[in-house]
Amino acid sequence: MARIVGGITTSHIPAIGNAITKELFEDPYWKPFFDSYPPVRDWLNEVQPDVAIVIYNDHGLNFFLDKMPTFSIGAAPRYENADEGWGLKPLPPFQGAPDLSWHLIESLVAEEFDITSCQEMLVDHGFAVPISLLWPDRVKTEPAKQIKTIPVCINTVQHPLPSPKRCYKLGQAIGRAVASFPEDLKVVVVGTGGLSHQLDGERAGFINKEFDLMCLERIVDQADSLTDLSIHDLVREAGAQGAEFILWLAMRGALDGKVRKLHSNYHIPISNTAAGLLLLENAGL
């Protein structure tokens, strides 16, 4: 049977993609950020997951306001990255795991989550930057040996956004779906985005360290206490785009009730954002 080995949450700021392209790993601005990733890569090397379920938000590459699904899941053998308009170099395609994708879609719809299934899905920086951070050698690896991926996209562009509680429950249903997949696969769940940031309005540049640190601590073993937050609470406390924390909660929902925190990092700023990183291992592993 398939099993979830652990979960990772990481920010997905576009500037990281540019910094990777320019290899700014030792640059004083970037070093404290990039130096936090090797322990997570070491864990991935040791555990060798077969599939990454990547919970992210599209920022206007695949979806426009003409059709804006709340929850959508990729069901394709591969996913293309593309020009987002402001200079990030597109990456080679990402490999899919369509059998597990369809199993997720079937299980989630059976559990009353109304999913949009996507046989073609452009994945943007919200998906691609975390993959580049976690599997930096992917682009040098032949496609068949690359990590297989399943994009799970949650709307954070146009309100109403799904509530923190709903996203946490979606994650729980993803956890059950993986556990019922007959193939012997190791699955890692990645939640991307966050932490506090706001790009728009007179409050642009808003950061809330106290709130972020509270979230980073509680999501480990008191995630229930975060699911009563409203989207309005998240926008007020974490900034308009800090509402991406719902993606972290979806990741946490997919893990067991008990987890081990193996690594975390918090760094201000990367561009306009407080960058967060967390590695949780299922306690039953």
């Binding site: 562009v157 146009q158 309100h159 109403p160 509530s163 706001q198 728009d200 309005g201 007179e202 409050r203 642009a204 808003f206 409203s230 989207i231 309005h232 926008v235 007020r236 308009a240």
Partner: peptide, 20 residues
Amino acid sequence: MPHPAPTEQPSIPGTTIFDG
């Protein structure tokens, strides 16, 4: 109970909720 819609909640200074 569901949370009230953002438009029914106190506005957040310097922040526009991008709703319908």
